[in-house]
Amino acid sequence: MASEARLTHLQTLEAESIHILREAAAETQRPVMLYSMGKDSNVLLHLAKKAFFPGALPFPLLHVDTTWKFRDMYAMRDKVAAAHEMIVYRNPDAVAKGVNPFDHGSEAHTNAWKTEGLRRALSENGFDAAIGGARRDEEKSRAKERIFSLRSEHQRWDPKTQRPELWSLYNTRKRAGESFRVFPLSNWTELDVWHYIEAEKIEVVPLYFSAERKVVARSGTWLMADDERMRLEKGEKIETRRVRFRTLGCYPLSGAVESEAANVSDIIREIESSRASERQGRLIDADTPSSMEKKKQEGYF
């Protein structure tokens, strides 16, 4: 991404993200980078490698597992874990109760594995900064999120106590028990991410690319029957469709869209012409009005 001319927006975004990553590593005692196998995670990991080149990453990766991710995602995770120190955390309570989206519902499932799982993973390991790939353009309540976002002892987010961020100065002071969520991709949009993946040839999970997949129609979207645990409701039947995913999570909760976009440039073209928002495929956002804001206050990433 080096050039003599005026910096492009991707170069500027990259330089800003690298600056943030270096600040996070320098100013916190025990940082960790969240890794979810999604495209934003892979971009973030790519940026972190650049930020600390020629050295290794100065923090481990953390995958908060739900046991319900797509198989392709686990394959990607294992590949990344072979190259970097990675902690895989599964909330022991959720493991014991066998929490799953079918019996417990999407809200309880997400809460137990992701929200509570992340909270426990961070406090049990004593991490004081969790670096994540969330972007401000994803959802309305994230538009006001800080780059260094302070979380209380109970890892709650209070919009009223967030600190103003001027210039490139981040106030990283905190009391014992408090922690930060750090968002180096704050100023990136979905399109920026895809343009960067294209320019930097970053590997992403193949589920983003259109292919014939075994899916079932539910709640106005396509769910993929990724393994034998998938439960069909009455009247549902598995069919084969050319679909792809705009975002990835637990497979019973991630809706696919019908698409012919089979590579990165197809996807960019599709996003530029499409107007459907990225998070629409995430069933959890539609649970209750302003549900993301509530989840954030509770500690969801």
Binding site: A2, E4, Q11, E14, A15, R22
Partner: peptide, 12 residues
């Protein structure tokens, strides 16, 4: 991305 011959304001 390799060594640079020149870096300018804004680059990390």
């Amino acid at each position: 991305d390799g060594e640079l011959k020149r870096a300018v304001a804004g680059q990390s």
